[in-house]
Amino acid sequence: MIVGQLSRDTFRALLVGSGLRVKAGPFNLSIRTRLPYLADQLHRMYAHYALMDEAEIAEFHVQVISKRSIRRPFAQLIQFEVDGRSPFPPVPAEQALATLEWGINLAIAMRINHLLLFHSAAVERNGHVLLLPAWPGSGKTTLCTALIHRGYRLFSDEFGLMDPQSGNFFPLPRLMPLKNQSIKVIRDYLPEAVLGPEIPGTLKGTVAHVRPPQESIERSDESAKARWIVFPKWSANASLQLEPLPQSEAFLLLASNAVNYEVLGETAFDAVTSLVRNCECRKLVYSGFDSALAALDELTDD
């Protein structure tokens, strides 16, 4: 059963009642909210997600509640809660979807240590993972969006989840928040992409989410090993460069990029070492999608 097969009323009833229990890659989420507009947004954006097996354990219990402020009695505010705790202050109600998505990411980042968490986009082609770690101003979400509409399978635009022992990466296909100018860029380049509402005024400016393709969600149990690591950097009017990166440099970039590298300590050191040794590491500078996609296709061709 997937969310899209539920009627809008059934879907809302779940969110209001015992919780919408959906599978997100290796995790199960329970989501609750009484906000009707958030329910409608989720019904459309989560359409491809499978409901989790009822007999299973849900790891994350989140809810979005409306909030009153004594200081601003007429403002419509909402707050995100994970297991009854609020990691963020209340925000205007129209930011509910963005806050929910960020809140879930934060909960994953705070709680999960049995996997190494790279702050990185990850996609799969020809059975292997291409890792695109964030690098300031990289536009990893934008590039990731382009890739998954051009034959790559989405693992995640935010977390490279790696089992430190086996080296396997796990898909965690979630909504991908495009920010500011990227929204128009993607609308122009990929008219077929399904976007959520534009949400202005967030901490990161205006945000609009890309719905993950159905196939990526359906195949989210299929893990894979990484074979390529590309550090992308968007630079206006730059000509395309895809250059080898020394393993030592790639190691340092990845170690400082992993969210829980320090917490895992020696385990993380060994895992990143073997990851870098088993991957082709590149640095990508690009300004246009066509040439970047062509270069990445060539890199990941069988």
Partner: peptide, 18 residues
């Protein structure tokens, strides 16, 4: 014990040790 429970418990233990 169930794998999902074990994963969360291991995660907490790793954090505590750190």
């Amino acid at each position: 014990i169930p794998v999902r429970a074990a994963n969360l418990l291991r995660s907490a233990l790793i954090q505590a040790r750190k």
